[in-house]
Write a protein that binds this DNA or RNA. Structure first.
Lengths: 174, 174
DNA sequence: CTCGGATAGTTTGGTACCGAACGATTCCAA
DNA sequence: TTGGAATCGTTCGGTACCAAACTATCCGAG
């Protein structure tokens, strides 16, 4: 509504939030370029996540995290818990609970690895495969909508710049 | 460890995940440019958030969301709950709980607005102001580390592209 | 062999987070 | 003036999410 006063709504020079930060803190010795870049990553994610859940995933009873698990298993086939957690960007303890949820929905199965009984191999069930097969194209279309206004080279550039951030943020430990 | 095989670690052409997706689904009619752009937004956030909490915020007993609230109040002074929730990117019901936490820590106060008793005005306490005054410069330095390898114009470009996504993801309703 | 350390996954305790339902207050139209 | 609609914040039920503690299994040095 009051978003981006005195800017064209299509391509605002700054978000309201960025403008107000500048007005309030512009005289401090802060790194505003990094601030805006990183802040906008969060702003984008919180909006995207909620929209994805409401517009695409709610229909299937999937949380964003649950969808991510199905997607990862779709791409990589069976995977053990530790690597799956890393790939999904969640702690392994978190994954245990989410897998329990997905198991109740009959979307994934866990089976112990015979050669090393500590490990669990997670796979999609047939239902799980059918679900992600149906959901993912919709999700991908949603991704297209969310990048409306960006050219192909914009999208590649965005992906490239984020890749650098992802690598900087990679945890060194565990 | 096995990250970005056959790439220079400093500036990978693709993340392992992106490469594997391409290998597995490259023949499907999907929008991979949007996929990589949006996926990397999530990947960046999950890493950044955890790193921020561990490396910067844990020392102060702040969650990422709690920090965001303090930061927003620092920039805008007092604010009512609804707008604060929107600015922080959380649901208003979520904010109620987080404010209760911050109130217990004596970092913020809530007071009813005299002219409209439905509304609550949230402000920083002196302790809250002192805390964010101390934490934010550290957080900003962290943001600088997380954007290491990006030039000034890269950061501005990243912020700009994300701004478009943020606007696309803005909820139309409430 | 065997026992101590490493590793994989789960459990635990606590917060964050959502949408929906709710109660209180305000606003507005008849 | 008054009663219904709109608005604001809280509550509620449920999942996601984390770090740390724990359990079970495996592995290697002696």
């Amino acid at each position: 509504m009051s978003q981006d006063r005195s800017n064209h709504a299509d391509q605002p020079l700054m978000l309201d939030a960025e403008r107000d930060v500048q007005a309030r803190l512009g005289d401090r010795p802060l790194d505003f370029e990094s601030l805006d870049a990183i802040s906008n990553i969060y702003r984008a994610t919180s909006g995207l996540r909620r929209r994805a859940e409401r517009d695409v995933l709610a229909e299937y009873g999937l949380s964003f995290g649950g969808f991510t698990i199905l997607w990862v298993l779709w791409v990589w086939d069976a995977m053990e818990t530790g690597r799956l957690a890393e790939e999904c960007g969640v702690a392994k303890g978190t994954l245990t609970g989410m897998l329990t949820t997905l198991e109740k929905l009959d979307l994934v199965t866990r089976e112990r690895v015979a050669s090393d009984k500590r490990r669990m191999l997670v796979s999609l069930t047939d239902t799980g495969t059918a679900t992600i097969d149906e959901v993912f194209p919709k999700f991908n279309a949603f991704e297209g909508q969310m990048t409306d206004g960006l050219s192909s080279s914009d999208k590649r550039e965005l992906a490239r710049l984020l890749r650098l951030v992802v690598n900087n943020a990679r945890s060194d430990d565990n």
